[in-house]
């Protein structure tokens, strides 16, 4: 029980910390959100590619997998595993296969939501 609580605390703190870094980037450098997302995504890909993502993940858990870093890491993981499995061509498919669940549900759910709701002026 205590161990679980500690995990939750680590998840909360680390996830929050990543967001604080992003927020600092917005305030200090005037980068647009899109660029910051790409920066974090690339850092996720990089961490996975050099093989340190998995050890970090085992400690931070959702604290690193829920931010977009996790998405980047999943893409890279897919590309690398499929590249080893199927050779050169596998690198092209792997990323999408690994993240297909998330992207698929995002597209389908967005489409469904669009059928039901309309945007509101604030």
């Amino acid at each position: 029980m205590l161990e679980n609580l500690l995990t939750y605390l680590i998840v909360f703190a680390s996830g929050g910390l990543f967001c604080v870094i992003a927020q600092l980037l917005i305030i200090k450098t005037k980068l647009t959100p899109a660029r910051i997302l790409v920066i974090f995504l690339l850092s996720g890909i990089f961490l996975q590619a050099i093989g340190v993502y998995e050890p970090i993940y085992s400690v931070l858990k959702a604290g690193i997998s829920v931010p977009i870093i996790g998405f980047g890491a999943a893409l890279a993981k897919g590309a690398i595993t499929y590249a080893h499995q199927f050779g050169f061509v596998g690198a092209f498919a792997g990323g999408l296969i690994q993240t297909a669940f998330g992207v698929g549900v995002a597209v389908v759910a967005s489409f469904l939501v669009t059928l039901i709701f309309s945007p509101k002026s604030k």
Binding site: I45, A49, A76
Partner: peptide, 14 residues
């Protein structure tokens, strides 16, 4: 960017 750079990462790994 995700697809592009992950593909690059996969190829480099290979």
């Amino acid at each position: 960017n995700g697809i592009f750079w992950s593909t690059v990462a996969g190829i480099i790994h290979l």
